[in-house]
Design a protein around this nucleic acid. Structure first.
Lengths: 330, 330
DNA sequence: TTGAAAGCGCTAACAG
DNA sequence: CTGTTAGCGCTTTCAA
């Protein structure tokens, strides 16, 4: 394992010169440069980033906190982050928190340890007070889930309006009994989507039935279970709005197991438009989030912030789109 | 940002002592330890890993190369890797290669740059000669896809027998016309699964119809397209074996769009048993790979290898299981 | 255009 | 049990 010293000695120059060649400094004569490059090639020299990172006090690493990597929604966002990171010579440290505050905190140590130059947090479990304080000390971007009360920049969509439109679509199709399978309301997006749901009901003068309000996590087993309990209701709904495609997919399965037809017996709307949504049978009506672009924007914001920590970074609200498919329009 | 120097000065001890406290050395008196820990707390000191890593010449980072993070098959494996890594104080550097050799090579530079202590490669696109050479210089573990000719340790399943059993299941149900949607045969697992397919056909004295052999990538759009062309055949098959659940899911969609019934008009078997497989309508018969455990084993092997690079590490062949569901058994 | 030298923050001999 | 010191590999003044 050759070091910069070896290269310098072999090329008959100082380590400073080798470093300059490595970093494309203009102030190196063509001849010297050629000589050094030749030696680098011959010795198969690879700069040791551990040394460089210490010296430069940076890791060129972006910490990305996701609740789960299994949900294709997050994978898509991560793809966007990675692409932008790579283009800016950053690497991505992807960490799965399972929405566990403690685990999340361990990962945040990577920031404090200087193993990461900044963090994109998608983790709804985040201790918000914590994140805010962190945001004052380190470059932090919130993605999808965020705190309304602090200044940490975020990228998200208008969850309330999006949910409102999804539910309105069901109501316009004549449904009077619409349930919602929501996630935990400690998450802002869950609160917002519920508000949208309520707004739509109100507009159509439909009273809220508390039995139609279910809270759970995002796994499709949970969607499956939620739908099952909905189907067991005395006065069961004719349509359901699930705040995540994974939940909706679980719900579809439940309905099929009960021998019912979608959308005739039960219409279903999901949220996110993960790639699987269009492959389902029936295909899933859903609110499409621009997942990849959300990731890209978050990464751009973070990189900007790392480069100029004191600059103000504007939060971004992205567009969404209701995609109508078979699960509501047979 | 306090350094170890600050702590030492403030506590009135040497940096060596602080370092000893940090690293839980037994040889520190309780009193000194308490004093130092108190200062650490007060100064909110966090050790700078950049310094430690340089000094120790390690990054405590595991490089993980996956073709794609969108395929739940890989996400599950990555979960296993991450869990084991975390338990051993390693972090995971997850990199998506898109099966692009060049991108992969850029990521492998992270090894050469000492930004990672070892690598788990699941990338079928890997330049095999390359990986072998790398394996001589660095800790490398191959996962799922591997080279038969070199000594780099791997963890995988017996793809040939697994495919054989999957196809045999179809043949036992009376199918005489069984197609295979395979991926690129530059991948060992693709060659093995095809061999298993051929073996089963041979055992049942069924001649191979070249029209029933399709090669493509793993996206479900590709499965969708492949099935469509299969359905367009003059003498179309009555069953299909897809070498990945994603392909099978695309195929299911195609069949439904053609107005045909699964499994009556067309039986479908997938491979992997990703979580979505059981949620499909109809649910998908598939070969279950122990994805999570595969990841765990790969991580264990790598960590062992990093600790003792010269020790021999045995490759592991894991079990699989054919899971029969509605897509073949109505 | 180049080199000498300092130092990023940490760990680990070695000596006491 | 604790301190002194060297040095991991690199970049970057500063001076020549």
């Amino acid at each position: 394992m050759a070091t910069i010293q070896d290269v310098a000695k072999e090329a008959g120059v100082s380590v400073a010169t080798v470093s300059r060649v490595l970093n494309q400094h203009a102030s190196v004569s063509a001849k010297t440069r050629a000589k050094v490059e030749d030696v680098i090639e011959r010795l198969q020299y690879n700069p040791n980033m551990l040394g460089r990172n210490l010296r430069c006090s940076q890791s060129r690493m972006l910490l990305v906190l996701v609740p789960s990597i299994s949900n294709p929604f997050y994978s898509k966002i991560v793809q966007g982050i990675e692409d932008i990171a790579r283009r800016n010579q950053y690497n991505t440290l992807l960490c799965t928190t399972d929405s566990d505050v403690e685990r999340e905190n361990v990962y945040l140590d990577l920031l404090r340890n200087r193993m990461a130059d900044g963090v994109i947090s998608m983790d709804p479990a985040v201790d918000l007070a914590n994140i805010r304080q962190l945001g004052e000390e380190y470059p932090v971007i919130q993605c999808c889930e965020y705190s309304e009360t602090d200044q940490t920049p975020y990228v998200s969509i208008d969850n309330q309006t999006a949910a409102y439109k999804a539910v309105k679509h069901l109501l316009m199709m004549g449904h009077k009994k619409v349930a919602i399978i929501n996630s935990d309301e400690r998450f802002l997006y869950a609160r917002h989507r519920k508000e949208g749901y309520l707004l739509a009901l109100e507009e159509f003068d439909i009273p809220v039935d508390p039995h139609y309000l279910i809270h759970t996590d995002l796994h499709f087993e949970s969607g499956h279970r939620a739908m099952k309990s909905l189907l067991g209701l005395e006065d069961r709904p004719t349509a359901v709005f699930a705040v995540s495609d994974t939940l909706a997919i679980g719900a579809l399965r439940s309905i099929k197991e009960a021998g019912l037809k979608v959308p005739d017996d039960m219409a279903v709307v999901g949220f996110d438009n993960i790639p699987f949504a269009s492959m389902m049978n029936p295909s899933l009506t859903t609110v499409a989030q621009p997942m990849y672009e959300i990731g890209c924007e978050a990464a751009r914001m973070l990189i900007k912030r790392i480069a100029a920590p004191q600059d103000r970074v504007e939060s971004i609200v992205m567009d969404y789109e209701l995609i109508i498919r078979e699960s509501t329009m047979g």
